[in-house]
Design a protein around this nucleic acid. Structure first.
Lengths: 210, 210
DNA sequence: GCCTGTGAATGTGTTCACAGCG
DNA sequence: CGCTGTGAACACATTCACAGGC
């Protein structure tokens, strides 16, 4: 292998591979690109190409060592070690995030939660005590650099601004609003309604209610 | 304009444009590609190219008619009219979906909710009465063709199977599992943890906890 | 013989640059 | 003169096909 930058599309698939491999690891020690392909629904040659960007990991005639591959993908995604995240907005969606156990597998821990509603302050959910949003400044001291925005649309931008001010450099934005951040801060947005909005386009016309 | 199929990447951006335009429509009657570009963070030439796939909508020297554009995008995405959706899994995430008001703007209505827990059956949330999962068959009669999967990982595939059997042809999968469906059924999956998993990769190394 | 790794070929998406309309 | 619409150029991603290792 020679020098390669990892294409962005490959980076987007890495979590998919990781999820699949973590799931397979309990039963399989090795897996071929074909076997993994069936499991994660990505073409085998694309899997091989993707993996080839970050080194030679497979054994011709055998396949890939599952554990070795998991560790390498984690390393590339910087998921080795624990990442502490702060949640802002303990509404319905925020609660769901706070109570969700699946982040641990990727090394994430929701270590702080904030809400604008004073009535919610002090409540302990899943081991995390909710604080008032005005206490966001404490994140810098606690070296929490990852933020999850789960506030209503109209509060999204100011929440993001406050997070950046508190030293956050990566934001998962779950609000239905495009937030603007300074260079050096990365935002990934998920607006569930926008995914849903794409669904009718792909559905058979005859069955689609008009 | 001559014949054009709409590229998939363009279809993915249409909901983004729609969200932005809906938001702009209260203040602006017309908008230029440059103006919209700033609002939705997509390059102006890409916006023009995207819009050019489905006709000539702009007026040179002026811009686009916001309302006309909204209607046309809705038509392409088949979001004109109302789409009834069924939610399966009234846990934390399912509840958040059920209580979320933002689907209406795109013409979606959660018209049914199901859970495997008999204790939840009969509860009315946001005007929707939760039924036991065994009642899923009623969807066919009610002509509900859209399903939202919000069940735990291990129940995802069987839930999808049951949905397909009940006549669902479009699934929004919110579970952390890749579900397999027959041809003719479209699945769009969102696994929040997998988006989060990509964040550290893009964050400045010096600040990332290792 | 099976499976990886990878150049080359192909396919798809984005950007440029500008003609032409209002 | 500003702004759209769009071929042409460019950039990027996927697929093919096969040499070479196990």
């Amino acid at each position: 292998m020679r020098y390669h930058r990892i294409p962005d599309e490959t980076v987007k698939r890495l979590p998919t591979y990781l999820r699949g491999l973590l799931s397979l690891s309990s039963e399989h020690q090795r897996i071929s690109s074909k076997g993994l392909a069936e499991y994660v629904a990505v073409k085998p040659w694309l899997i091989r190409k993707d993996f080839s960007y970050f080194g030679e990991f497979g054994t011709p005639g055998v396949g890939y060592d599952v554990v070795k591959l998991i560790n390498h993908i984690k390393q590339i995604l910087r998921l080795d070690g624990v990442h502490k995240a702060a949640l802002v907005g303990v509404g319905n969606l925020g609660l769901a995030v706070l109570k969700y156990a699946g982040f641990k597998a990727y090394g994430f821990e929701i270590a702080a939660a904030f809400d604008i509603d004073p009535a919610k302050a002090g409540k302990k959910i899943n081991g995390v005590t909710v604080r008032h949003i005005s206490k966001l400044g404490s994140l810098k001291r606690r070296r929490i650099t990852l933020g999850i925005v789960a506030v209503p649309r109209d509060a999204a931008q100011e929440t993001a601004d406050a997070m950046v001010k508190a030293g956050i450099s990566g934001i998962l934005n779950l609000s239905p609003y495009h937030i603007e951040v300074p260079k050096g801060v990365k935002v990934i947005s998920i607006d569930i309604a926008m995914y849903l909005a794409r669904l009718p386009y792909y559905m058979p016309t005859t069955l689609t209610a008009r």
